[in-house]
Design a protein around this nucleic acid. Sequence first.
DNA 1: TTTATATTTCGCAAAATTACGAAATGTTTT
DNA 2: AAAACATTTCGTAATTTTGCGAAATATAAA
Lengths: 103, 103
Amino acid sequence: MEVKTKKKRYDDDLLELTNISKALSHPLRLYILKRLSKMNACCYSGDLVDELGVGRSTLSQHLKELKYAGLIQGEIEAPYIKYCINRENWALAQKLYKELFNL
Amino acid sequence: MEVKTKKKRYDDDLLELTNISKALSHPLRLYILKRLSKMNACCYSGDLVDELGVGRSTLSQHLKELKYAGLIQGEIEAPYIKYCINRENWALAQKLYKELFNL
DNA sequence: TTTATATTTCGCAAAATTACGAAATGTTTT
DNA sequence: AAAACATTTCGTAATTTTGCGAAATATAAA
């Protein structure tokens, strides 16, 4: 009798790296990360709207995804929200890519 | 009068890195890449079907995407096709992530 | 040359991603 | 308190991704 093979279970590091990669897989999000990852850089949502020429709600959605992936964090600086890299998780991402590429 | 701001044009390196990241953003594809990136490792489609418990056509689709992204290459070794890392483009990916993380 | 094997392509349906305007939320300024 | 400003949430439509069985392609073995 044919045995329907069971689906592979992936380990946590691999799943984490797929999530991070998904976060990096849109030009707008990657642009933001590159911009913020520079030494001590932060920015406001409004700045990026002008810089990128994208709808406010669209940008907000992408920022939310980056936040959800843990790569950035927002700090309220009323009436703005200041976004910066989440250094802890950025270092984790760095580690995972390093492992992938044997750096 | 309101000026509808122009959409940002992204540079080639950034777009290339988004494409590579997209290729890495699925557990099955990342698993394959991790497996193949080990020293001199190659594999056949059939091996992976058993190992991953996924439909043949599904796997084929993912291999196609990895090929399209330039990260792997297939060599005919009848009746099989032997898949390996495309070392040249793998090195490029490595370089781009290195730049992103200032490694 | 028929049969078996390895893989891909096709067609399709379900799910996820993307973009954006309108409306909502919350804060500051007047 | 009202008006102005920054940002997010909601609703929605278009597009892309994903998964898989059936059929097609191509080669090897009998």
